[in-house]
């Protein structure tokens, strides 16, 4: 399982995504753009609307009340010994319900081979609004994850090949915050058993119970189109073979219009599977319909 498989995997995947994108473009007549620029945020590595590594209380796309929205996304991270590739689709109705599907592939450059999983996501906005009113927008979300390469996770002590994360998020934008700029903040609390997102399975020899993890993002809009910020994601530590560390990143987001959003980031993933100093570059592209 080396480069040969990678090459085989991606052309087929990208063809099917392009097909889906074509389908979605055809349904554009039904899609809405009633939300303000950037208020649909971008798409996280688990397919949920949010930042890069943190799902936000925002719903993906620009669909407002009574409107449908769709996004097609690609995320890529390249750190010292690993490469993460994610493709995802997102369907949103009425700034209320967000459904997502994502496939993740982690290339193990040093160890060899790869780890893959599929993530089915659901998010419901419970109350509040990102921009208007005093209260934050609050959403409840689920991420059901199925690891399709469980041999390696099992060998290092993982208990299950599938798991479901439950999270509660609160997000708020301040139109004229410090420096008279627009700021956005999100706090997410997640109950999870996932090891390295689930790519190393769920639960393990060290701990096999759900634990609560805090995740946060903070960003400042330099102007209407450029967002700079940072994120932090607390992670569980369930496997005895290698300690799992919290993740962090600093990012720049570009929202040229309501169709495209591009993010580049510097990520610090600490040590993964015992390999230290996993820092590197991250990029994501979101196409909205």
């Amino acid at each position: 399982m080396t480069k040969h498989n990678m090459i085989k995997l991606y052309p087929r995947t990208w063809r099917s995504w392009l097909f889906m994108a074509a389908l979605l473009t055809g349904s554009q007549a039904y899609a809405g753009d009633g939300k303000l620029l950037a208020t649909g945020a971008v798409t996280s590595i688990e397919g949920a609307g949010g930042g890069g590594i943190v799902p936000w209380a925002t719903t993906a796309s620009y669909a407002e009340k009574g409107e449908w929205g769709f996004t097609v996304n690609g995320n890529f991270a390249d750190v010292d010994d690993f490469q993460l590739g994610v493709q995802s689709l997102n369907v949103t109705y009425g700034n209320r319900i967000e459904m997502s599907y994502a496939q993740q592939r982690l290339g193990l450059n040093t160890i060899g081979g790869d780890l893959q999983q599929q993530i089915y996501g659901l998010k419901v906005r419970l109350s509040g609004d990102l921009v208007y009113g005093d209260l934050p927008q609050i959403s409840l979300g689920l991420q059901h994850k199925r690891n399709t390469t469980f041999a390696l996770p099992q060998a290092v002590g993982a208990a299950d090949d599938s798991g479901t994360d439950i999270y509660l998020s609160a997000a708020k934008a301040w139109l004229a915050g410090p420096f008279e700029r627009t700021w956005v903040a999100n706090l997410t609390l997640r109950a999870t058993k996932a090891n390295q997102l689930g790519l190393l399975g769920f639960g393990g020899d060290k701990n096999d119970d759900y634990e609560a993890m805090a995740e946060a993002s903070l960003g400042m809009f330099v102007n209407r189109h450029w967002l700079i910020g940072a994120e932090y994601r607390q992670k569980p530590d369930n496997l005895g073979f290698a300690k799992e560390y919290d993740w962090r990143d600093i990012f720049v987001g570009w929202f040229p219009n309501k169709s495209v959003a591009l993010v580049v980031a510097y990520v610090d993933l600490k040590s993964i599977a015992g390999l230290p100093d996993q820092t590197g570059a991250y990029a994501s592209l979101q196409i909205s319909f």
Binding site: G32, G34, K35, L36, L37, E64, K65, G66, E67, N95
Partner: peptide
Amino acid sequence: ITRAEFNAVVE
């Protein structure tokens, strides 16, 4: 007035 219309005027 819908939320989308309010946002349209903001834009």
